[in-house]
């Protein structure tokens, strides 16, 4: 596949998104005495996975977004690893081959040591992502689009 040599903004951690995601589970964990250490553990592993995505797949990724109930409503961290902790990886290419899914599973998540969390992910093309984001705007549910974790910013 030919690639145009176009200067693009680098893929970086979205600090506002991370801060928002940190704040999400507070209401769901008011009765959880282990919230702070569990939260730290969750974000330690989250950041490790994001670093690997930046290092190994920066050319393929447009953005990474936390999606699902954990991003939209928060979750009681005591329910891990049973509640879904999902990231949507938005690709810069027009297709999302299964081979790329396997590569990401192998090189980012294989030895992450997250048995107590079980991070999962799905892939989407930029076109699919944009269609989904537009749908959330039209339905006036912007929270459903997720929280950015990695993004290309100037």
């Amino acid at each position: 596949m030919a690639h145009e040599h176009v200067a693009v903004n680098p893929l970086r951690v979205h600090k506002d998104g991370i801060a928002l995601l940190r704040d999400r589970p507070r209401d769901s964990n008011l009765a959880n005495p282990r919230f702070d250490p569990q939260q730290e553990r969750l974000f330690e592993v989250l950041h490790a996975a994001l670093r690997r995505l930046e290092t190994e797949f920066a050319d393929e990724i447009e953005k990474v977004v936390a999606v699902g109930d954990w991003a939209r409503y928060g979750m009681d961290l005591r329910n891990l690893p049973f509640d879904d902790v999902v990231r949507l990886i938005v690709l810069r290419q027009r297709e999302r081959p299964f081979s790329l899914y396997l590569q990401i599973a192998d090189r980012v998540f294989a030895d992450l040591g997250d048995d107590d969390i079980l991070f999962q992910f799905r892939l989407a093309t930029l076109e699919e992502w944009q269609a989904g984001a537009e749908s959330t705007r039209q339905r006036r549910v912007p929270d459903a689009a997720g929280i950015p974790l990695l993004a290309r910013t100037g």
Partner: peptide, 20 residues
């Protein structure tokens, strides 16, 4: 390990009890 990273289907289930 590869396949379990795919976000899984969530069947309808009774409300969860927070594990101790």
């Amino acid at each position: 390990n590869r396949l379990s990273r795919r976000d899984s289907v969530k069947a309808s289930a009774p409300p969860k009890i927070a594990p101790c």
